[in-house]
Structures are given as structure tokens and as C-alpha cells.
């Protein structure tokens, strides 16, 4: 395990949708070793625990990391008030990311689970299909970023205000009926991940899911971020920060 801890300047900030913050940080040492699906542990001043935020994009040439997150509580609100030029105290990159098999992949993102899928689909061009689901048109983020890197995008909204009217699992099943990818990578709400894992099993496709849990140390020492998994045929509480956040969907007890 190799990670860093340091203070890095914010070089770009955007507000792509309501309650969504898009921060780019100049952190060349971290960008050099980060992998898609990993996360960083960000310090929110005034609060005791760090906040785990998935890495949305890694730019090794510019030496930057991009974080896109939702303002959900105190910690993310404090982070959202950071401005360009401010410093961010970061531990990272942390955890295990997604595999990068040869051939075609499907990435599935639901809501604020979409950001880590951007880096995951990068480099695959049109060999990656990004199935991206949002509540409604006004919550849609990052779809143009996926298109810009050449991915095929299937946009879904729960209320039908943009793209396919329905859940990402429905769109995923349509894709799987046509063609089986080498891997499905997914991040989003727990019920969505469960649905994706079931489809992957049904169609006999490998699948990795990125999980979330309330976290402490971020590196595997404190053991608070337990999640239910199977190990050697028995239920075992793994830890999202160190064993994950990305797990083989067959190992997760949903």
C-alpha cells in the first residue's frame, strides 16, 4: 500500500448541477500513482473525520485530480465552500480500483456514483459504454465528459425528462441482450448495485461494484467501514477503504 498525505491547491471549481461540486486539485505526486476507482480522504476544516470522495478524473500530464461530489451533509458543505487557490488536505490515492480488461466494458453509474466511472471508462473510447442514471434532467452531470473521451453514452432518468425513461438496470439489460462485455463496472446506490450484480450473474459477465460506507481512518486500520462479503464460502466483514471500495460483485452480500 502506498499513499500520500499532503496539502494541495484547488486549481478549478465548477458547479455543474444543484448541490454538485466539481473540484480539480493540483497534486502531481498523487496523480502519478492514482488508479480509476480509487478514492481520496479529504479534510473538512472544523470536522473531526475526513470525507472519502471518489476520484473522478486523473490527469497525469497536468498533475491533477478531479473530484465531483454532492453536498450531502456538514463535511461536503464545508468542502463545497473551498475556492480556487485554497488548499485541500488530502490523503490518497486510497483503496483498490477497477480492473482494466482488454476488450469492451460497460460502466454503470447512478447519480453521484457517476463520477468515478469517468476515469474508469477513459482510454476505452467507444469500447466503453457508459450507462448513466439520474433522478431528473436537472441532476444530469458529466455526460459530455464521457462523450468527449469517445465513450458510448446511454443516458437514463428516473422521470424521463432526459434520455431513456427508466433505471440503469433496464438499459443495462438491453445492452447485455445485444453483446456481452469483458467487464461491468458499477457505482451508485445499493439497490442499483444489487440489480446490476444480479444481471451480471444472469448473463454470465464479470462485474465489479464500488461500495460506500461511513469511514474512519481510510487506510484499513480502524475497521469501522465494514461491509458484508463472502470469503472462502463464509460471511466475512471486509472493509470498504482497504479491501475495496471496488469489490467483485460475486463477493458482496447485498
Amino acid at each position: 500500500m502506498a499513499y500520500l498525505q499532503g496539502v494541495y491547491p484547488i486549481v478549478k471549481k465548477e458547479l455543474p448541477a444543484r448541490h454538485i461540486i466539481d473540484l480539480t486539485v493540483s497534486a502531481p505526486e498523487m496523480a502519478a500513482i492514482a488508479r480509476p476507482g480509487q478514492f481520496a480522504h479529504l479534510k473538512a476544516e472544523g470536522l473531526f473525520l475526513r470525507r472519502p470522495i471518489s476520484i473522478c478524473e486523473i490527469d497525469r500530464e497536468k498533475g491533477t485530480l478531479r473530484f465531483v461530489f454532492e453536498i450531502k451533509g456538514e463535511g461536503t458543505r464545508v468542502l463545497s465552500e473551498k475556492r480556487v487557490g485554497d488548499n485541500l488536505d488530502i490523503m490518497g490515492p486510497l483503496g483498490h480500483g477497477f480492473a482494466r480488461p482488454e476488450g469492451e466494458i460497460i460502466v454503470v453509474g447512478g447519480g453521484i456514483g457517476v463520477p468515478p466511472m469517468l476515469e474508469t471508462a477513459k482510454g476505452y473510447g467507444e469500447k466503453a459504454t457508459a450507462i448513466l442514471g439520474f433522478r431528473s434532467a436537472n441532476a444530469v452531470i458529466l455526460t459530455q465528459d464521457f462523450q468527449r473521451q469517445g465513450n458510448r453514452v446511454v443516458l437514463c432518468t428516473d422521470d424521463g425528462t432526459m434520455g431513456f425513461h427508466g433505471f440503469v438496470t433496464q438499459a443495462l439489460e438491453q445492452q447485455l441482450q445485444q453483446k456481452k462485455p469483458a467487464l461491468i463496472c458499477a457505482c451508485g446506490p445499493h439497490p442499483m448495485l444489487k440489480g446490476v450484480a444480479q444481471l451480471a450473474q444472469q448473463y454470465g459477465v464479470d462485474c465489479q461494484v464500488s461500495l460506500e460506507e461511513r469511514m474512519g481512518c481510510g487506510v484499513g486500520a480502524c475497521l469501522v467501514c465494514a461491509c458484508r462479503t463472502v470469503k472462502d464460502g463464509q460471511e466475512y466483514l471486509s472493509h470498504v477503504c482497504k479491501d475495496g471500495p471496488v469489490f467483485d460483485s460475486k463477493d458482496v452480500l447485498f
Binding site: 470536522l47 473531526f48 473525520l49 463535511g75 460506507e213 461511513r214 469511514m215 474512519g216 480502524c222 475497521l223 469501522v224 467501514c225 465494514a226 461491509c227 458484508r228 460471511e235 466475512y236 466483514l237
Partner: peptide, 20 residues
């Protein structure tokens, strides 16, 4: 032993609760 089911951590003013 596996410990307790998650969530096992809650933030508090100037600290945290754990139930690992």
C-alpha cells in the same frame, strides 16, 4: 471474530463514536 454490523462509526462534535 467479525465484530458488529455496520454502520460502526458516527461523527460527533470534536470526536466520534465507534462500535467495531
Amino acid at each position: 471474530q467479525n465484530g458488529n454490523p455496520p454502520p460502526r462509526v458516527a461523527e460527533t462534535p470534536a470526536g466520534m463514536l465507534n462500535s467495531v
